[in-house]
Computed example of a mutant assay.
Amino acid sequence: MQQISPADATKFDAAGQAQVQQALSTVQQAIAQGNPAAVRSPLQQAIAAVNQHSQQVSQRRAEWQRRKAEAEQQQGELIGSADCGSGG
């Protein structure tokens, strides 16, 4: 699994980031109880939250990059057509 930067986590899935933090907090509370069996369920939920968050961030970041590239291409085409039109 690839590490997600805090900036990307906030920018592309703030709600998911909050869910992961809550899930990890629940795991820490279960660990503090000292009962390994009590950790299993919160840990599974935390793993699921991290996986979902990671997927959301990756998908949304990829979509953002695609849109950015598309916008830059359109900007280049506009600038290019403006340069051609002013050469007289």
Rank of each mutant, 00 (worst) to 15 (best):
V57C: 12
A23I: 03
E72L: 09
S58E: 08
L78N: 12
T10K: 10
Q75D: 04
A23S: 05
S81L: 04
T26S: 03
I47Q: 15
G34W: 06
S86Q: 12
P42Q: 04
Q17R: 12
Q45V: 10
S25M: 14
I47F: 00
Q55K: 15
E70W: 06
I4R: 08
V39H: 03
D13Q: 03
A7Q: 11
Q44K: 02
N51E: 15
L24Q: 15
R61T: 07
L24D: 11
Q55N: 15
Q55Y: 11
Q19S: 14
Q52M: 06
I4T: 15
A9E: 12
S25Q: 14
Q21T: 14
R61Y: 07
G88T: 12
K68A: 13
E72T: 07
P42C: 01
Q33N: 07
I31C: 04
S25Y: 03
S81Q: 13
S41G: 09
S5Q: 10
V50N: 08
G76V: 09
G85Y: 10
K68D: 14
S41E: 12
G85M: 13
A49W: 01
T26M: 02
H53A: 13
A32N: 09
F12M: 05
I4L: 14
Q44R: 05
A71G: 01
S25K: 14
L43W: 09
A30H: 03
V57G: 05
A62Y: 06
L78T: 09
G16T: 08
P6N: 09
A71V: 10
V57E: 07
Q65V: 06
Q45E: 14
S54Q: 15
Q59K: 06
T10L: 12
G87W: 11
Q33W: 00
K11P: 02
S86P: 03
R40Y: 07
R61M: 15
Q29K: 12
Q3P: 00
K11R: 15
A23K: 02
A32F: 00
R60Y: 05
R61E: 08
L24Y: 08
A69S: 05
Q52C: 00
Q44Y: 00
T10I: 05
S5F: 04
A23W: 01
Q29P: 04
E70N: 00
A14D: 13
G34V: 04
A62M: 09
G34S: 07
N35M: 01
E77S: 05
Q28L: 11
Q28I: 01
Q33M: 04
G76H: 15
A69H: 08
Q73L: 15
G34C: 04
G34T: 04
A30I: 10
V50S: 06
A9V: 06
A7G: 05
A46I: 03
Q22E: 11
A7I: 08
P36G: 05
P42R: 00
K11V: 06
Q3K: 10
G16H: 02
L24C: 04
Q2Y: 02
Q2C: 05
A15M: 03
E63I: 04
E72S: 02
A69W: 02
Q52D: 13
A49N: 02
Q65Y: 04
